[in-house]
């Protein structure tokens, strides 16, 4: 039995979580979501999602500090990490994952998530 591919959304905005969840569920993905960094990390450890979307404003810490534990989880499971935020160009180098500056459009963001997931799929097949 093939289990559903899953995406974890960690974003303080309930609206963003709802929009992303609605759009991605329609593409047959299972969604885990949280508005808080700590809970998000718990979900990541428990469900090992195939992709993580992280909005940097979930944490009280700076961008790099917020990002790094998720990056670690993502590395452990080889899941792509999409980072959303308004971060100065010079601070971006400290971040891991695919950075998408805010405000973004949802269409391109969802296409990027799909691309990353399918790339991971082919990577998994080759390996």
């Amino acid at each position: 039995m093939v289990s559903k591919r899953s995406v974890l959304i960690v974003d303080r905005s309930e609206e963003t979580r709802e929009v992303l969840a609605t759009a991605l569920e329609r593409r047959g993905l299972q969604i885990f979501a949280s508005g808080r960094a700590e809970r998000g990390l718990e979900l990541a450890r428990a469900h090992r999602p195939d992709l993580i979307v992280l909005d940097l404003e979930v944490g009280d810490a700076g961008p790099a500090e917020t990002c790094s534990p998720f990056a670690e989880e993502a590395r452990a499971t080889q899941a792509p990490l999409v980072v959303l935020g308004s971060v100065r160009r010079n601070e971006r180098s400290a971040l891991e994952g695919e950075f998408v500056p805010k405000p973004y459009h949802f269409g391109p963001l969802i296409r990027k998530i799909e691309e990353l997931l399918s790339a991971r799929g082919s990577y998994a097949r080759i390996a």
Binding site: S13, T16, V19
Partner: peptide, 14 residues
């Protein structure tokens, strides 16, 4: 305003 804009874009997308 950026955050509000993000919300409006999300709603429009749906």
């Amino acid at each position: 305003i950026k955050n509000i804009l993000q919300g409006i874009r999300g709603g429009s997308y749906l």
